[in-house]
Design a protein around this nucleic acid. Structure first.
Lengths: 173, 173
DNA sequence: TATTGTTATACTCTATAACTATA
DNA sequence: TATAGTTATAGAGTATAACAATA
């Protein structure tokens, strides 16, 4: 479900729009699509890109430790890790001490990709931050809508942005 | 991905937590789980419950019209409608004028269920609204965390809440 | 016996293409 | 020819149970 959620062809959506939770949900969807389009240019999803960024900040982190921190179930984390490894972005190896453990780190290719994709995350945050300053009466609803709109403005092209356009459903990790 | 996202066993998550978008995403996940647990007591998801609520506010709405308004693709809407119809909550019938069109309305059973489930949506909104008043310096981040926490307090039992507890993975619509 | 990570499985959501039936 | 809704298919997220290897 989604949308700026205003005028929808005569449909009464007030039962949804009057809820703060719905506004947050719409904003989240909008942000994820914005980020998703851009991550897809590099064959990633916002989730897989976020995981790579956390691994970069925590080289040598364990499989389960990462899963717990990000509230991802271990079996699901396994699938994600395997896809990232297959794509050559991630290095998985057994811990020398405890042979049950799997230790994670980025490959040089992973470092390169995440350096580019990270730019999109910062760009989105800049757009959202700029939308904040003036709160109003219905402070939060106003903030939500303002942030929602902040993502719709034309954006300056960057090195990451110029990389590749619309990869036609190229299965993203 | 998810969580209050603070202390995570020594892991550095600042690359995520410093982003406003991540905070919104975490809040959204938290809200959806809160609502999801409660909707599941009635065999629904927050999404299917929301769809039923919009149909209740707009009896006789068309299939595609509803899909467009909620940004759901028509094929996906079809699957959702069929499940709701199978469960006896929704009535689908062809439009008399244009025989291509499918017109939607709640069944009496649907009305009954959504009257109960709607209480959870209002309850969540009340909790979130109460968390707002005092903004601070990092206004929005503070608001997000406050709203996040607002869902963790013990809640007063209601008729809807007492209905049934933890239906053990009973496939939700 | 407990922990770590894996496999297997299932359900949902999402997205596209192709089909039917009406108009 | 265009529109409304459907079917078919595929990818991704999420969840649980059961398993192997190790501690």
């Amino acid at each position: 479900m989604a949308g700026p959620a205003k005028k929808s062809g005569g449909l009464d959506l007030s039962v949804l729009q009057d809820r703060i939770g719905f506004r947050v949900h719409m904003l989240d969807l909008h942000m994820m699509r914005w980020l998703g389009e851009r991550c897809a240019r590099h064959g990633l999803t916002p989730a897989s890109a976020s995981v790579l960024m956390v691994i970069r900040s925590n080289p040598g982190v364990r499989h389960g430790e990462l899963a717990d921190a990000l509230l991802i179930r271990r079996p699901n984390m396994t699938k994600l890790m395997r896809r990232l490894e297959t794509r050559g972005l991630l290095c998985r190896k057994g811990s020398p001490g405890d042979k049950r453990r799997v230790v994670l780190a980025l490959t040089p290719e992973g470092e390169k990709v995440i350096a580019e994709v990270g730019g999109y995350f910062r760009m989105q945050d800049d757009l959202l931050q700029k939308a904040l300053p003036g709160a109003g009466d219905d402070a939060l609803t106003t903030l939500m809508d303002s942030m929602h709109g902040a993502l719709d403005a034309p954006e300056p092209e960057t090195s990451a942005a110029t990389a590749s356009r619309k990869p036609r459903r190229k299965a993203a990790i």
